[in-house]
């Protein structure tokens, strides 16, 4: 999943990025609030889910994002 997310980052940012679980999405990737919104929407399209705003606010690192996407997929499957 991390590779998929990296590809989406590259697509939104228009440049190659190296990410780990600990990568801080705002601090390390230099995203502003609009960039984050576009990125979140691209993630939502890719995984066919919606991330509610309160969960978006809790996502700081790539690991947080992977966790959120997995949680939302499990909730949808439940």
């Amino acid at each position: 999943m991390r590779d998929e997310i990296a590809a989406i980052f590259e697509q939104v940012l228009g440049r190659p990025v190296a990410i780990t679980d600990e990568t801080d999405i705002v601090e390390d990737l230099g995203m502003d609030s609009l960039g984050v919104m576009n990125f979140v929407m691209a993630i939502e399209d890719f995984y066919d889910l919606s991330i509610p705003l309160d969960r978006v606010a809790q996502i700081q690192t790539v690991a947080d994002l992977i966790q959120a996407v997995n949680d939302l997929r499990n909730e949808a499957a439940a």
Binding site: M41, P52, L53, D54
Partner: peptide, 13 residues
């Protein structure tokens, strides 16, 4: 207003 309430907030394009 969306933050004052308890509903789940989803943003669309």
């Amino acid at each position: 207003g969306s933050r004052l309430g308890m509903a789940e907030v989803i943003r669309f394009r």
